[in-house]
Simulated assay, not measured.
Amino acid sequence: MTDIAAAFAQIMVAASGALGAGYWPAVARWPGTPVMENGSIVTPGTPIALDCMAQVDAATEAMRGEASYTDGDVRILVLADTLAGTLDTAARIEITEGPHVGTFMIATCQRDPAAIYWDCRGRRA
């Protein structure tokens, strides 16, 4: 399936660049895991930042039906082949270019059946 994901990512990135719309440069960020001792942070976690391409869209009807949904939540699609890692709800997505520049907290995150993208519900941080 990674061949499909790679081909789709290549097509979408090229189309986005040509049309100036769609997927935009982004960074998936995690704070890292601190080392704790006696309830205090001994060593802060090493932050992780992975480049990717993401698209911000309106929340789906299914997302709107989730108990934790709030007005302003959005759907974020991250092309799986552009992210060198696994996306989860501990991450924040920083869109660095395009009409939705900013940082988004991830409330839900799952892979689509074809493993082409990560389908997330997020809100501005």
Rank of each mutant, 00 (worst) to 15 (best):
5 A>V: 02
34 P>G: 01
72 G>Q: 01
36 M>T: 06
125 A>Q: 10
79 L>S: 02
120 C>W: 04
31 P>F: 08
87 L>F: 04
60 T>C: 11
53 M>H: 12
85 G>M: 06
69 Y>L: 08
94 E>Y: 00
60 T>D: 12
103 T>D: 01
60 T>M: 13
49 A>H: 12
8 F>P: 04
120 C>P: 00
110 Q>L: 15
14 A>D: 14
26 A>P: 04
34 P>H: 01
101 V>S: 09
91 A>F: 06
100 H>D: 14
39 G>I: 08
89 T>S: 08
98 G>R: 07
92 R>C: 10
68 S>E: 12
32 G>A: 01
72 G>H: 06
90 A>E: 10
34 P>T: 00
28 A>L: 08
13 V>W: 07
64 R>V: 04
61 E>D: 14
5 A>N: 09
72 G>C: 03
104 F>V: 03
37 E>G: 10
94 E>T: 05
35 V>E: 08
119 D>S: 10
101 V>M: 13
84 A>Y: 11
94 E>R: 01
81 D>R: 07
74 V>I: 08
47 P>Q: 01
65 G>D: 00
67 A>R: 15
104 F>Y: 14
17 G>Q: 12
102 G>C: 04
103 T>L: 05
95 I>G: 00
45 G>N: 08
61 E>T: 15
77 L>S: 11
42 V>E: 02
114 A>R: 13
66 E>H: 12
47 P>F: 00
11 I>A: 14
116 I>G: 00
14 A>M: 08
101 V>D: 09
59 A>G: 03
30 W>Y: 12
65 G>T: 01
2 T>D: 15
49 A>R: 11
82 T>G: 04
95 I>H: 07
59 A>S: 10
110 Q>H: 15
121 R>W: 01
78 V>S: 05
60 T>R: 14
16 S>I: 04
63 M>C: 00
41 I>T: 12
81 D>S: 08
54 A>G: 06
84 A>K: 14
68 S>A: 12
11 I>V: 14
67 A>Q: 15
55 Q>Y: 02
72 G>S: 01
95 I>V: 09
17 G>C: 06
51 D>C: 03
48 I>M: 13
20 G>Q: 08
56 V>H: 00
27 V>N: 11
54 A>W: 01
24 W>R: 03
40 S>C: 11
81 D>F: 03
93 I>G: 06
102 G>I: 01
106 I>L: 13
13 V>Y: 07
40 S>A: 15
50 L>C: 08
97 E>I: 01
36 M>R: 05
18 A>R: 13
91 A>N: 03
26 A>T: 02
72 G>Y: 07
4 I>H: 14
20 G>I: 07
12 M>Q: 13
80 A>D: 03
111 R>N: 09
7 A>V: 07
110 Q>R: 14
88 D>Y: 08
121 R>G: 02
119 D>R: 07
87 L>G: 00
111 R>Q: 14
80 A>F: 02
1 M>E: 14
53 M>C: 07
1 M>T: 12
7 A>R: 13
102 G>H: 05
43 T>C: 13
43 T>R: 15
44 P>M: 05
2 T>N: 15
20 G>E: 10
71 D>Y: 10
38 N>Y: 09
21 A>F: 11
71 D>G: 06
45 G>C: 09
83 L>A: 06
89 T>C: 11
110 Q>T: 15
13 V>C: 02
116 I>E: 06
35 V>D: 07
35 V>R: 04
2 T>H: 15
53 M>V: 03
111 R>S: 13
100 H>N: 13
